[in-house]
Amino acid sequence: MTDRERELCNGIIHTASAAAAGVGAGLAQLPMGDNAVLTPIQLTMAISLGKVFGLTLDQSSVKAGIASAAAGQVGRTASQILIGWLPGVGNVINAVTAASLTETIGWIMAKEFGKEAQLGIA
């Protein structure tokens, strides 16, 4: 990954993570309420990351990638059920968890897309 690609990925991933944090904080008291909003944020992030590396991604392949990376959502859901309903504390924990998972998913995808671009796999 070049410095320019890393810079672009950084902006895309951090923007998506900040959006995920806002959603996580705002919808903390609704069980599973933020998943419907987080998925489009992560889809958009993945498509944007693909464009950085000249990869064309369709929504089905992006959804498959996010689904496999979303195994970590189990921990997020558990924290939301256990603590997420607590006003204030739950909002902060849910925001941090949503942002962290989005950040992690983004960097995993960016590194994989970078490898694919180097190898000429589209």
Rank of each mutant, 00 (worst) to 15 (best):
G11H: 15
P31I: 12
E112K: 06
C9E: 13
I12G: 02
H14K: 15
E7A: 04
A21F: 13
G75S: 03
A46I: 13
L101Q: 07
G84K: 00
Q80K: 08
N35T: 15
Q118I: 11
V74R: 07
A98K: 05
A28Q: 05
V62K: 04
A46N: 10
E103F: 13
M45Y: 10
G120L: 07
I108H: 05
P31H: 09
T2K: 12
A18D: 11
D58I: 08
P31E: 13
S61M: 14
S100Y: 03
F113L: 08
E103V: 03
P40V: 07
T15R: 15
A69W: 14
Q59S: 08
T56D: 11
I121C: 00
L30A: 14
G65H: 03
L82P: 02
E7V: 06
P31A: 08
Q59T: 08
K111P: 00
N91M: 08
A16N: 12
Q59G: 03
G114M: 08
G22L: 14
A71P: 01
L101S: 00
N10A: 04
A70V: 00
A19H: 05
D58Y: 04
G33W: 15
L119F: 05
A19I: 11
A16D: 12
A98M: 00
M109T: 08
I93E: 04
A36L: 15
V52L: 10
T44L: 11
G65A: 00
I47G: 04
L82A: 14
L49P: 01
D58L: 10
A21Y: 06
Q42H: 07
K111G: 07
T15C: 14
K111D: 10
K51H: 14
I83A: 05
L8D: 12
P40I: 06
L119I: 02
S61G: 01
F113N: 02
Q29V: 04
D34L: 14
I41H: 02
Q29E: 01
E7I: 07
A20H: 09
T44S: 13
P40F: 06
I108L: 01
M45H: 03
E112C: 01
G26M: 09
I13D: 10
V96P: 02
A18L: 15
E112S: 07
V89N: 06
D3M: 05
R6V: 06
N94D: 03
V52C: 11
Q29P: 00
L49W: 06
D58G: 12
R4H: 10
V37H: 08
L30Y: 15
A69G: 15
M32E: 07
G50F: 11
I12L: 13
T104M: 08
V74I: 15
S61C: 04
M45K: 06
P87W: 04
R76H: 05
S17D: 10
T15G: 14
D34K: 14
A98E: 02
I108P: 03
Q73V: 09
G33T: 13
T104S: 08
D58W: 03
L119T: 02
I108N: 01
L82I: 10
